[in-house]
C-alpha cells in the first residue's frame, strides 16, 4: 500500500519479537536503522519541513 502511494515499502517493518529476546530486538532495530539510513530522509518529512518554512 505504501508503494502504491509512492512511499518506499522498506520504511515499514513488522516483526514478532518476544520480551525475552532482547538481542534479537536490538539486532532488528539496528538493522532497520541502517536500512533507513540507506534510503535517506522520508518524502513526508521533507514535505512538512517545506510547509513549515
Amino acid at each position: 500500500m505504501l508503494g502504491f502511494c509512492g512511499i518506499e515499502a522498506e520504511r515499514l517493518r513488522a516483526r514478532w519479537v518476544s520480551s525475552a529476546e532482547a538481542p534479537e530486538f536490538v539486532e532488528e532495530v539496528n538493522d532497520f536503522i541502517s536500512a533507513l539510513k540507506q534510503i535517506g530522509p522520508s518524502p513526508l518529512k521533507k514535505n512538512t519541513a517545506q510547509n513549515v518554512a
Binding site: G3, F4, C5, G6, I7, E8, P43, N47
Partner: peptide, 10 residues
Amino acid sequence: DMAGRFEFWM
C-alpha cells in the same frame, strides 16, 4: 513512478 505516485496521493 514513485515520485509521481507520492505527489498524486499527497
